[in-house]
Design a protein around this nucleic acid. Structure first.
Length: 85
DNA sequence: CATTTGACGCCAA
DNA sequence: TTTGGCGCCAAAT
């Protein structure tokens, strides 16, 4: 019952369409400022169809990864009108 | 239980 | 500015 993990999933699930959050932001909101890495790990191993994990990107402006493929993630972001740096 | 892995982030050179 | 290295955390093996 890791609060952090639960929070991460909940936060990502609450991301509105057309919006994106960075792993660092999610981690910070979840309660751990330096757990950006853990956030990615959680999403990767605990993929849920209800969670738009493709809306979580890196702080560098890069997309990061995606369990369904980086291309898929990129396509999804573009489809939602998110401009990629 | 200890070690390794992994969708990251920041600092120093 | 770009690259390399280190730190950080949670889950899997």
């Amino acid at each position: 019952m890791k609060k952090f993990t639960e929070n991460v999933l909940k936060i990502v699930k609450k991301i509105p369409v057309g919006s994106v959050l960075t792993y660092a932001e999610v981690a910070k909101e979840a309660g751990n400022r330096n757990a950006a890495r853990a956030v990615g790990n959680i999403l990767n191993k605990n993929f849920n169809p209800k969670i738009p994990c493709h809306r979580v990107i890196r702080s560098d402006g890069k997309l990061g990864g995606y369990n369904r493929g980086a291309k898929m993630k990129k396509s999804l972001l573009i489809s939602e009108g998110i401009n990629i740096i």
